[in-house]
């Protein structure tokens, strides 16, 4: 779902959703869902972050990636991947986006109980000169419960 403050023609809205969706989806995949588990390399997790945001995010990687759990995870099963966009678009040009995200996945473990992980919060995006959208701010929470409990979707 996309809310627009201002005006944005239908075609531009579609294009925006695709580009912003790509930036967020790339982050989810690189940080949580993708790769061969068990994995140790998360160096590309913040490729769609701005330089300064990526620098800060590396300091918060224990929450912003699966880095802390990765060695004990055998596989990751996505349950839900959702981003709702609020767009600032004066004069038919999108200037900034707040994405309210919710990512739910199960981290399968061969040695311990599986864990259901929920990532939620906000990602702030703006457009670079190249036309690509990048994440310049984050406010993200993470919770984990044994899989099968905590039925939040």
């Amino acid at each position: 779902m996309t809310r627009v403050a201002g005006t944005l023609k239908k075609a531009r809205r579609g294009s925006l959703e695709r580009k912003v969706g790509r930036a967020i989806s790339s982050y989810f995949d690189a940080a949580y869902l993708g790769g061969e588990y068990p994995r140790a390399d998360f160096t590309k997790a913040f490729a769609t972050f701005s330089e300064g945001a990526a620098r800060q995010a590396r300091g918060d990687r224990s929450l912003l990636t699966n880095a802390d759990l990765a060695k004990s995870i055998a596989a990751v099963t996505p349950i839900r991947k959702d981003a709702r966009l609020s767009v600032l678009a004066p004069k038919n040009v999108a200037a900034g986006v707040t994405a309210r995200i919710r990512l739910v996945f199960v981290a399968d473990s061969e040695e311990a109980q599986d864990t259901r992980v929920t990532i939620s919060g906000r990602l702030l995006l703006t457009r670079m000169k190249s036309g690509r959208w990048h994440i310049f701010g984050y406010d993200v929470a993470r919770s984990a419960v044994p899989a099968g409990k905590g039925a939040s979707r």
Partner: peptide, 15 residues
């Protein structure tokens, strides 16, 4: 009932 720990982080790029 359940009590679940939720950890959070925030950051912003502004130079």
């Amino acid at each position: 009932t359940a009590l679940v720990k939720v950890e959070s982080v925030r950051g912003i790029d502004h130079e």
